[in-house]
């Protein structure tokens, strides 16, 4: 799968001022590659990732998925795109703390058009792939930060998406745990997924297949 941004703009009006979170971003990314987008806080990384992921409609330009305009479609189609082709990973994990790791991983199937009969097996597999086979029935709230992020990654990959979009996935982790998570994501790209990591930590770009740099809502380095 290929995702391309064409002059993507996202303008917010805040107290009568216009904030240009994205100011004409063009880029392209493919499955099987690890893309790392770096930039300072407030540079527009999260906004770009959400635009790519079908979560936040840009105010200008277009996001093309295999050549088709993603936002030409309605809420239903965008939701299906997020469900079937994208997996999100967030800085603060966004798990339900009182539910088990397995229950958290099963959530995408709740909104699947046709939930597979082997959903639980798939969730087990996904947790196995992130190295949490032992913690399946543990409430997410009782896991360590690194384990939480692994559960989040398992949730992102359980429905076999084409892309995993990770927003500051190491932001709440110590350096070593962060490195493990990056290695895990790197592994996913090697297995054929498209992985996009946005981070303010420019060190992570070293493991990237493709490194982009964003500042003030524009790609300033590595533009394709």
């Amino acid at each position: 799968m290929n995702i391309s941004c064409r002059e993507v703009e996202k303008h917010f009006s805040l107290n009568g001022r216009t904030v240009r979170a994205l100011d004409g971003v063009s880029c392209a990314m493919n499955s099987g590659t690890l893309v790392v987008i770096t930039g300072r806080s407030g540079s527009g990384k999260t906004t770009l990732l959400n635009a790519i992921g079908g979560l936040d409609r840009p105010t200008g330009g277009s996001v093309l998925v295999d050549g088709e305009d993603l936002y030409a479609r309605g809420d239903r189609a965008l939701s299906r795109y997020r469900n079937e082709r994208i997996g999100f990973v967030f800085q603060s994990f966004h798990l339900s703390p009182d539910e088990t790791a397995l229950e958290n991983v099963l959530v995408p199937f709740l909104f699947a058009r046709r939930p597979p009969s082997d959903a639980r097996t798939r969730a087990h597999d996904a947790l196995g792939r992130v190295g949490l086979a032992e913690q399946i029935d543990q409430p997410a709230g009782t896991l360590s930060a690194g384990q939480k992020q692994r559960v989040a990654i398992a949730r992102a990959i359980v429905n076999r998406p084409d892309f995993v979009l990770a927003d500051e996935p190491t932001g709440n982790l110590d350096e070593r745990t962060g490195a493990d998570i990056v290695a895990l994501l790197r592994g996913l790209a090697e297995q054929g997924l498209g992985v996009v990591i946005v981070t303010h930590d420019s060190a992570i770009s070293r493991v990237a297949d493709q490194a982009l740099r964003i500042a003030d809502g524009r790609i300033v380095e590595g533009e394709s």
């Binding site: 909104f111 699947a112 949730r155």
Partner: peptide, 16 residues
Amino acid sequence: RHEIGIFRSVGASRGD
């Protein structure tokens, strides 16, 4: 609202 956000990110539509 966090749960709502997660649900939307994993594929819940407004209608859902």
